[in-house]
Design a protein around this nucleic acid. Sequence first.
DNA 1: GAGCGCATGTAATATGTTACATGATTCA
DNA 2: TGAATCATGTAACATATTACATGCGCTC
Lengths: 180, 180
Amino acid sequence: MSLPHALLGLLAVRPSSGYELAKAFEGDLGRYAWQAGHTSIYPELGKLAERGLVEVTHEGPRGSRTYAVTPEGRDELRTWLLTPPRQAAKVRNERVLRMFLLSVLDPADALEVLRRITEHTAAEAAELRRIRSDAGPVVAPGAEGFGQLAAEYGLRQYEAVHSWALWAIEQLESRAAAAS
Amino acid sequence: MSLPHALLGLLAVRPSSGYELAKAFEGDLGRYAWQAGHTSIYPELGKLAERGLVEVTHEGPRGSRTYAVTPEGRDELRTWLLTPPRQAAKVRNERVLRMFLLSVLDPADALEVLRRITEHTAAEAAELRRIRSDAGPVVAPGAEGFGQLAAEYGLRQYEAVHSWALWAIEQLESRAAAAS
DNA sequence: GAGCGCATGTAATATGTTACATGATTCA
DNA sequence: TGAATCATGTAACATATTACATGCGCTC
């Protein structure tokens, strides 16, 4: 259960309201690492506050409450990040599941899906490269670290899947040739 | 909710008992794509059987029941695989979450974790390459497709994370140099 | 003042995890 | 015959999703 740590991490970057945290999960975070909706975030913030790991530092308009990590919360987060997970963390990724199950389709269908994957991953990677070159070299020390980490991860991710799909297509085609 | 489709997919490769399916999730599948324990598998098999997507084809010793996909189940699986997910599938991956949150640690701690990541991913990738070369070229057409897909995916995955971690280390070090 | 986005929440339902529970078969 | 593994399941608890619900504040 990593939601509390995800929240501590986001709040360690910048104090935020539950609403802002929910937005964060819709971006790169939810795309590559962890997702959560506001209906799980609000109760979890309550629990973290009870445990003294976060606190409300500001109340704004429309009943908004800005939370920040406490020193205890920062300790907890640091310990969690520095302690290697005892067991290889398991994963839930529907995209990858779909990829693996392609082998049960007949070759024509599988090829069709694999081609879609190569197109999609190429487009996403190109977009990330474009953004990166627009942004220019990273200078601001410490700032924006999070988004940069995510973007570079995403780029390598799409490249890896792209290369995998090309390999899979080649396999399928060479098998088809061998069978004929 | 992808568990039913994961089960249909596994059973489409080969009819199996709930116990065998549970084992499958402990391997590459659970490592890269989707995890599930036996306590969710057994009830789900029951539901799939009720919906007519799988059926018991054999009862063995120790009360074991072998399930197989029905034609309806195969249709359902094919439709699911060929229909692109309307919305970008979200992800739950604790390892990636940990990677992204590294930016909240102080540089010395972050570097330590990043070095561990480079070592770990290099070792895993090397292991996968070793297995691949042991296995020799893939010849059996159709057979073993699943494990091969997973192994090649895993290899590219570890290479991607390795390269990402090296990039992140470089970033951190150049920032440290700029700040001094 | 109408509509949109901000901002928070609860309730019902579904799903997943942990702990508990049982018994058969195989192999040393 | 004792231990390990096969094989299935239930119950209690934790967590996540979906639907519902409310109201403020800003902008046109």
